[in-house]
Design a protein around this nucleic acid. Structure first.
Lengths: 126, 126
DNA sequence: CTGTATCCATTGGGATACTG
DNA sequence: CAGTATCCCAATGGATACAG
């Protein structure tokens, strides 16, 4: 009985496609290459910029920054800068971030558990 | 103690960045605008191309096709074409697809439950 | 250390029209 | 009905260099 949010369009009877519910927006904030990974990393505790960059292997500073900023904008992450030299900045999940990290980890765990199975079965030729 | 798959890089001590584990691939297959939505729609039962197009409001035929093909390549979805005229094609989740739809719905439900909360709190300016 | 500034490549996604 | 064929755009992501 539960359906994917905003996939049915039952709430929309005119054709102004632009004004969809926020569900898709949020889903898209989470659905990009790094957001879920970053939240997963932060789920283990607050971390500094450099730590995150090492954790999320392969991410470039520009992308890391934009990812964190987006998560910040949606209040999944808090950024705290300490006025020291050298600078120290800590990123931590908000309550909302911790909350979403639960279903996100559910997905991560699923992937971990099924990765080899998929690897074995799938021929992604194309 | 569970971490986001392949976010720690603990399995990688050289620097050939290309050969990461399949986890990220899979996560990326699921992490795009339509995949999760499509799986959610199919979780309620097999559906035809046209039905899906109506369910996933706003999706264009090209994108719907590519989404389904990708999900098919990873064996989340099965495609069955009946040699009739007019043609009839049914898409259904595989066992794997049904399996992943569970954590995916967990995420969807979270989003549904928190959408307004986020909407109220977030100023995504920028 | 924590970023920003450029520049660039890829591609996901979209609009529209057309076909077996 | 179930797609394909084109054309196009914006955005994500990446490499590298540089700055406060």
């Amino acid at each position: 009985m539960m359906s994917v949010p905003c996939s049915t369009g039952e709430h929309r009877d005119h054709d102004v496609y632009a004004v969809l519910c926020p569900c898709r927006d949020i889903l898209e904030v989470l659905s990009n290459r790094w957001s879920a990974l970053a939240i997963g990393a932060l789920a283990e505790g607050p971390q500094r910029y450099g730590q995150l960059q090492r954790r999320l292997e392969g991410i470039t500073p520009k992308v890391l920054t934009s990812t964190l900023r987006r998560l910040e904008a949606y209040h999944f992450v808090d950024r705290t800068a300490y006025p020291e030299i050298p600078p120290r900045v800590e990123y931590a999940l908000t309550d909302l971030g911790r909350s979403v990290s639960v279903p996100l980890e559910g997905l991560s765990n699923w992937v971990e558990e099924h990765a080899d199975l998929i690897r074995g079965t799938a021929e992604h030729a194309s």
